[in-house]
Design a protein around this nucleic acid. Structure first.
Lengths: 198, 198, 198, 198
DNA sequence: AATGAATGAGGCTTCATTCAT
DNA sequence: AATGAATGAAGCCTCATTCAT
């Protein structure tokens, strides 16, 4: 029992590790097994096939992020505060859990990892819920501006920031914490009106 | 000579095509050769190996983007206008050239496609130059705020927007053009001061 | 004990079932165990290995056929009648027990399922005994013609008819019963002299 | 060119050899390659996949048998003579070409080797044509008896005889030639009326 | 009496690459 | 300038089997 969970988790760990360190195409049953120190066959004792393994990875991440976001809602009563906290949480989640972030948001899922549509909806809802809070906070002040577009742009910002950070394309002179808080500020500026394009 | 360039370009074309349509894992020498109508062996007459082929793809893209950005500088005299135009150009480049964008910014190049450091520097400079203009426009008005951070955030926004768009994760109800201009507006808001984090 | 036999028989049942429904390649310890509802390991409590399992199947079939043929001898006193009844029984055995027939006569046993020579002799004797009756019936009337050859030909006919029937290569317009009785008639024609080859 | 055909034929040869000697389940790309003395990969230069290899084997056999039967028709003018000659040819084909016979008539094609329906029809037509001649010869003398049933029984006999012979289940004391001619005689007895079942 | 955990061998297939021509 | 022939490594996966419990 202990051993069961142990090996299963080792497999997940090493798969995650490979994914982040070497990219998806380097996540092979053989390589994972090698890192774990078991036979490729053994992996099939815990996962039906490679897809199932990847899906487990994705779901793990979804759960964690979901939990984090729920905590943000509970921690604050003000919509704007909730929003900012959520932005921060999202970034922090990505920054500190590259293994999950990559698998959740950067996998070219279309062709590579056929993922049950139902589960995808859940994945999106995670971000949708995220967007909803912006709605609320924005809605109170700016009912005229389409909040869907703005939410999408906030999402773009957060996703882009995380992606570049994880790809180590952020200038080394910028401290992580600074980048993080300033990005949240930039996102929070969405709570206020934007100047129309000239 | 004409034939030489012809085949070489056909190879690049089909490789790009495969990359976008079927994903990186489906870019194989065999499949490229099949699409071109030549032998896999023939590809090696023009590219040392698969990595070299991918790198050529990347460089092609870098050149095109570089050209586009240079044109923005020439087209406007005002820094702010240059900046907005560049943002727009960058987005449009990504939106209309997914083949290049994917290979340039979304390939987990680290280990997947070992890329000579020297070439990477050139790649970065492309975006650096992009950031420089923000420097100028911002610098004139807000010399006190570290422009490097803000430039990075703009880049994050543009990269995130493009990535989500290409991954078809933008809500279908949002027209492409609207998304594009609004993102530019959001980026342009960087030209003005941001409210400090509370 | 009851449980012992129960599981053992379930294993044989499902192995037979798999053999007929899905073909020999689909008779795997895993699949048998799955159908039975036990572990692959458990099968090894009752059968030394896969070969032993297959052999048990073969022997089961041999016993049943043996019994059937013995009954034919008891049911009739006339040699010719015995012979016809045996032909009929053999065909019916094959038609109604494809699971056994396939494993008994259509498995390329030579190398696929190494079968102890001693057991093979017993298998042959089953058919030999079958041939003996022809001997008797024929012998009485045509002592000059080698009966071994004719017996072999009858066997060929019966085996061919059964094989084609089980492979569903008999024209669908021919009713099973008609095919069966006519084949027996054809076999019975062996009881009479055959015209020499011209 | 010479080498091309050479390797392709070596592959077919060894595949056929394995098939007869060790049974279908032992025909693996690895084993064939090993016997030929090449890499498994090389097989894929000549055959799209394993199925294609097996199909080639089947078609080879079909062609040869088809040719043989056509010759029988040409060699004789009398229907009865044609029929007997065809029986003999069929048996001889099977006896001397076990590689082809096994693959053509003894492969559990349903599950193991998905074979294009169209090609199967061709395979059957080979035997159908065979049956037609019996029709003719029979038709002249016995128009009242359903010739389809009798043809099927002849086919059963020939198929059974060949199968048992190839499985080496024919008593060693019976010379091949005797068995062959006597089987033809037995088949030829179909040209005459059969006594009804009592 | 039964199983959970594990494995080595091998199944089919595709890859990037080379070498002689 | 191009290719035909070939390969070793590796991809995913399933097999029969064992061993400790």
């Amino acid at each position: 029992m202990a051993k069961y969970d142990n090996l299963r988790e080792q497999i997940l760990d090493q798969a995650r590790h490979l994914l982040v360190e070497k990219g998806y195409i380097n996540v092979t049953m053989r390589k994972v097994a090698h890192l774990v120190g078991c036979t490729p066959t053994s992996i099939y004792l815990y996962f039906e096939n490679k897809d199932a393994l990847i899906h487990s990875l994705i779901e793990e991440g979804m759960d964690i992020l979901h939990q984090k976001i729920k905590e943000c809602l509970a921690a604050e009563s003000d919509s704007a505060a909730q929003f900012k906290r959520m932005c921060h949480s999202f970034l922090e989640f990505g920054f500190t859990n590259p293994e999950y972030y990559v698998v959740m948001f950067q996998l070219p899922t279309d062709e590579m990892v056929p993922y049950p549509a139902e589960k995808y909806r859940r994945a999106r809802s995670n971000l949708q819920q995220f967007a909803d809070v912006l709605h609320q906070a924005r809605g109170e002040k700016q009912p005229t501006i389409d909040p869907l577009v703005d939410a999408t742009m906030v999402w773009s910002l957060l996703h882009g920031a995380t992606s570049l950070y994880l790809a180590q394309r952020i200038d080394a002179r910028i401290p992580k914490e600074l980048f993080l808080t300033r990005t949240v500020d930039y996102a929070a500026s969405m709570l206020n009106p934007i100047h129309q394009s000239s």
